[in-house]
Each structure stands twice: as structure tokens, then as C-alpha cells.
Design a protein around this nucleic acid. Structure first.
Lengths: 107, 107
DNA sequence: CAGCTATATTCCACTGAACGTATATTTTAG
DNA sequence: CTAAAATATACGTTCAGTGGAATATAGCTG
């Protein structure tokens, strides 16, 4: 999770991720469309790959990068777990209020 | 989204967020439980607050920080939008394959 | 094999962010 | 009003990460 967040937090890497939404691309294509130079592009792709955000497929001279579903599933699960925290807290508050009301009506 | 990711990507800030899962805390309590010094804690809390991750409530001398639901909802929605990308791609692939098959059986 | 293309790696400079210490600000207590 | 407690801000240092230029590596083509 930490490495995923770190990889995505860098603005230019986030741009790469958004670009790859529409489909897999080679290093050169990514660099061209985002006006990055090639080495910098490779470095960002390395970070994203090592974080598991991207998958690489070697095809002859070229390397085709594509989004991996996993990190986004993890991110979604992690973010949604906070929603569950709220709901649990609400449940406890609800139970507490109900107990309060019951104590009031019983006597 | 960019500021949310940036705020959460820093390991010590992530620890603060995880700590606040269990409920709101004051600056001093956060610093103590995570063995941070007070100024550094305040700085991290500032970044998290400005990114909308935390909400502050002033209570006399103290400031009580709590998680805000919004950024996590946004994060969840953003992450899940990638899943939708996959499904759409699958749909297109599916349609393509069906058309292929139809072309085959028609003649 | 030689030359060419695509990508990765290395080296260096620089910026930004995190950290610690000291200080300022705010609020309460006496 | 003064002293103490809780928090925020300012300042200087250090370090990680980004960016660019040059170079290395891998694979194709003739």
C-alpha cells in the first residue's frame, strides 16, 4: 500500500497512469504523448512497475506497459475499509442511543 | 486527488491516518502514541488537513483531529473507476469476438 | 558483423520535503 | 496579570527524489 501510494503521488507518474487507462503503450509512445524525455520516462515506469502498478511485456525491441488491476483493487479495498470504520462507529453510537432511550422509558 | 495522494504517501502521515481510524485524538496524544515530537506532528497534521484528509475541532487549549470521510470516498471512486475501464475493455473484446464468430458461422 | 532503434542505466546538479531546535501564539489556571 | 500547558510557526540542516545529458544494453536489419 505504501509503495503504491508513493508511486501514484508523483504528478508525472500519475499522468502516465491516466494515459494508460486507454490502453497499453510503449515507452516511446508514452514519452511522446506526455512530452517527457525517454530516460525520465523509463525511470518513472520503473518505479510504477516495482510498485506493481504496471505490467511489462517485452516485444522485440520494445516494452509495452499496461496497468495492473491489483493495486487499484487494493486501493479501493483500503479506502472502503474506512467507510466501514464510520459505519461501525455509527452502529455503536446507535446502540448507545437506543440504550439511553430504553433506560429512560423503563422507569 | 493529487493532494490526497501526496498527503497519504508519506509514511509517518499514513501512520497518523491509521491511528485516527480508532477515533479522534489531540495533537499531543498523536505525538505520544507515535513517538513523534510535537512540532513535526503539527506539520504533518497541517498537510493532512489542507489535503482534506483530516478535520480539526478546537476545544479550549487543544485541537482534536479526526478523519474526514470525503477523501476516502474520492479515493475509492477513483480506484474503482479503473475497474470500470477493465470491464469496458472486456465488453469491447467480447463484442469483437462475437462478431468474429458470427462472421464465421454466417457463410 | 555493422549499423540502427528502442529502452535502460549512470552520473551529476538541484529542488523540495522532512526533521530537530528554538520561538511565537493561544488558552487556561491561579 | 502572570505562569503554565497545548499547539503552531520559523529557521537551518540534511537527505531523497526528480530531472537532464551522456552512456550502456538489447534486439532487429541488412
Amino acid at each position: 500500500m505504501k509503495s503504491i501510494l508513493h508511486a501514484l503521488a508523483e504528478p508525472n507518474r500519475l499522468r502516465i497512469v491516466e494515459l494508460l487507462r486507454s490502453g497499453p503503450l510503449t515507452v516511446g509512445e508514452i514519452a511522446e504523448r506526455l512530452s517527457f524525455n525517454q530516460p525520465q520516462t523509463s525511470k518513472h515506469l520503473k518505479v510504477l512497475s516495482e510498485a506493481g502498478v504496471l505490467l511489462v511485456e517485452a516485444s522485440a525491441n520494445r516494452r509495452i506497459y499496461r496497468l495492473s488491476p491489483k493495486p487499484f483493487q487494493e486501493l479501493e479495498a483500503w479506502a472502503s475499509s474506512f467507510r466501514r470504520d464510520w459505519e461501525e462507529r455509527m452502529d455503536r453510537l446507535d446502540g448507545y442511543l437506543q440504550r439511553l432511550q430504553q433506560d429512560g422509558t423503563e422507569r
